[in-house]
Design a protein around this nucleic acid. Structure first.
Lengths: 223, 223
DNA sequence: TTTTTATTCAAGCGTTCTATTGAATACGCC
DNA sequence: GGCGTATTCAATAGAACGCTTGAATAAAAA
């Protein structure tokens, strides 16, 4: 095979993947799947898309080998193809952060934005070791069950208001959720502060933690 | 700002970057720029595109903040915006490798493909320390000048045939070039073996080496 | 077997992207 | 100032994409 021909072909292969990453809708799907496997219908509900449209986007992601489907009777369960895909998604996001100043601004424009800088992941490990803080997972319980940080308590954002009495007032509370661009943890921090707790949010969320190969509870192995 | 609206906006931002990565032509440009800065015309010549077309693709890459342009009198010099962009490109490629079995096959179908497994980068550092091998850089000299591996000798593929007498016959020769999907090093290895030298290719090339923060010669800082 | 449920496929239509061409800009040089 | 060079802009036609709708499939339930 000639060199030129070879190059054309490999770049076309790479572009298949790039192309799959080139739609906001598909990235949203990928981001949800980074939290754990989902059925088509669940994805449609969470993204306000029609089922057919979701299915179509999933085909594109599947042809790029970014996601895999498994049939469970009448349902199809989709998941990320492997953790390298998660790396790719997080790398893409961090490049975006780095390069697009508007992104940080968008983040700050949100009502519940927490001004204070988040707790670094390394520091969290120290805090938990010393039992100097309580860690809450504010994602929906389904995602908590699929996998969560060690020593974290599941406290989905929608249940939090009624479950405040379960939390201590003598130690700081650290909240995490789906990642840097998920707002559950910010909402939790805002609410807790209003109620007189000391609260902070973790830097990053479940996917960032897991991608760094830190200790986790659950069996989130994608394959 | 409402949550839904926030999400829409950030995914759209991320998708701008994904979209820029979604064209084989643009990836080819990015790959060349990973070797060092270039003028528009040089890019056009190297990719067999019209200048206008290259310029157009460069605008897309620039709007995604993946590349930057600097004006030098009448010319415009383009370069990668920063090394995170290189990380992204390499991550994309490694996901592709991982997931698309056809890629490896394509690689093997090339005439000059070197059957033997390449020398790992860590091993090269040991070999060079012990002076047990000679390292040659088979890229065009312009790229060598922009930055190269320590202790490497510039020996562009086109000059190699006339410069064989400069190479030792009592030590192995290791060749590297632009990276895993560049064929200069494979060609060099093939030629050297025919002429009775012991030759191997390095795993990866300049961008992989540099992205790993290993020692280099030159000032390849992109910004 | 018929019905229900979850998903995929196929067609259609408006929008966006691509490559080409030729014109416009901006700079350096005579 | 006028000319040549390097790059960008603008306009176009054709291909590709995205979303919707409605039908097709395939497994499970009745």
């Amino acid at each position: 095979m000639a060199h030129r021909e070879f190059k054309q072909k490999i770049y076309a292969e790479f572009a298949r993947i790039g192309n799959a990453l080139g739609s906001a809708r598909r990235l949203e799907l990928l981001d949800i799947l980074a939290q754990g496997p989902r059925h088509v219908e669940a994805l449609a509900a969470e993204t306000d898309m029609t089922v057919a449209n979701v299915s179509q986007h999933l085909q594109v992601l599947r042809q790029a080998r970014l996601v895999e489907a498994e049939r469970e009777g009448t349902k199809a369960l989709y998941r990320l193809a492997d953790r390298h895909v998660l790396d790719l998604w997080l790398t893409l996001r961090s490049v975006a952060e780095e390069r697009l100043a508007d992104l940080g601004q968008l983040r700050r424009d949100v009502d519940v934005y927490d001004e204070e800088s988040p707790v670094p992941r390394d520091e969290l490990e120290r805090l938990l070791l010393d039992r100097d803080a309580v860690l809450i997972d504010t994602r929906p319980s389904r995602e908590y069950e699929h996998g969560h940080l060690p020593a974290s308590i599941s406290m989905p954002m929608e249940e939090l208001p009624e479950r405040l009495h379960e939390l201590p007032r003598d130690r700081p509370i650290i909240a995490y959720c789906r990642g840097d661009y998920c707002l559950f943890a910010d909402e939790a921090v805002t609410l807790l502060r209003e109620k007189g707790f000391e609260a902070h949010r973790l830097d990053g969320g479940w996917p960032e933690w897991w991608a760094e190969d830190r200790a986790v509870v659950g069996d989130p192995e994608i394959t």
